[in-house]
């Protein structure tokens, strides 16, 4: 996993609540056995007017010319709800997103983001509203400083909080399996206490 410290990039405002992981990556693209190849299908049913993906939908925000190259996704409440498919954050990451900012995230999606190195930032509703007002229709950039837990836009600064261990893992690109394997003794000790029917 790549290390994350600071990131500045273009913001695209996706003004829809309860965006589910079926919308982020529809099921017809889940048949791969590799981690790559999902980005081109991100938001497929919204991005394209046809099932084959040949006619871009001009009304979908991610297709708007001023947002091309965006790396920060501004979203509404309950982002990433539904299916546990990690293919959804894989698709967003490959599409180019490094940061997602929303008032709330679904739990599994949030954990998946942390585990693959996307930074999910929760801000208060009023702050999210301010950002939507600033970004709607306009090409705007933000700077995200993970080390100091700050998002800066023009002269405004928003503070976010993050679980300390999540922060450590993102900052250091921790291999979480390798980290836990250093605790094998504790795992073995735990297992000796299990009854044989467990």
């Amino acid at each position: 996993m790549d290390k994350f410290s600071t990131h500045s990039g273009l913001v695209v405002p996706l003004d829809i609540a309860n965006v589910d992981t079926d919308a982020i990556i529809p099921k017809q693209f889940l048949q791969k056995t590799e981690r790559v190849g999902f980005g081109q299908h991100a938001f497929h049913d919204w991005r394209y007017l046809d099932g084959e993906g040949t006619q871009p939908n001009p009304d979908f925000i991610l297709n708007a010319p001023q947002y091309q190259g965006a790396s920060i996704l501004l979203a509404r409440e309950n982002f990433g709800c539904g299916s546990s498919r990690e293919h959804a954050p894989w698709a967003l990451q490959e599409f180019g997103f490094k940061v997602i900012i929303a008032p709330s995230f679904a739990d599994i999606f949030y954990a998946n983001c942390i585990n693959i190195g996307i930074l999910p930032i929760k801000l208060a509703n009023e702050e999210i509203n301010e950002l939507f007002e600033a970004c709607n229709g306009n090409a705007n950039s933000l700077t995200v400083d993970l080390l100091n837990n700050k998002v800066t836009h023009d002269n405004k600064c928003y503070t976010f909080s993050l679980d300390k261990f999540h922060q450590y893992c993102l900052e250091n690109g921790v291999d979480s399996v390798g980290w836990t394997l250093k605790k094998l003794d504790a795992i073995e000790t735990f297992e000796t206490k299990l009854a044989n029917w467990q």
């Binding site: 546990s84 498919r85 990690e86 293919h87 954050p89 599994i108 954990a111 998946n112 585990n115 693959i116 679980d163 261990f165 979480s176 399996v177 836990t180 394997l181 605790k183 795992i187 297992e191």
Partner: peptide
């Protein structure tokens, strides 16, 4: 009982444990 992502599936396969807040 709860659902997990593929990185966590890998973590459980390798360690039989999971990190949870």
């Amino acid at each position: 009982a709860f659902g997990i992502g593929t990185s966590e599936v890998e973590h459980v396969l390798a360690t039989q444990t999971l990190r949870q807040t």
